[in-house]
């Protein structure tokens, strides 16, 4: 199990190294906008999760 975990972590590190130089060079503004979009969408999903949880409890 520990060995599998070590192999997986090493694999993930290798993937990170392979893709460390992205082909598209985004400006700081674009990266910030994309990050804000992602975080905002996750925030909306959390609201959904809250709604789901309250509806489940009510039922």
């Amino acid at each position: 199990m520990r060995n599998m975990l070590r192999v997986s972590i090493e694999k993930i590190r290798e993937i990170n190294r392979r893709y460390s130089n992205p082909r598209i060079k985004m400006s700081r503004g674009v990266r910030f906008a994309l990050l804000m979009l992602r975080l905002y969408l996750i925030f909306l999903v959390l609201i959904l999760a809250y709604k789901f949880a309250t509806m489940t409890v009510l039922k």
Partner: peptide, 26 residues
């Protein structure tokens, strides 16, 4: 709560769609 899960998953999927579409367009 299977029925609630069914409906909510559709909504979660579309909420995350803009991120996927943005990358596709870029």
């Amino acid at each position: 709560p299977l029925i609630l899960i069914t409906l909510f998953v559709q909504v979660i999927a579309v909420t995350l769609l803009p991120a996927a579409l943005t990358f596709l367009v870029l």
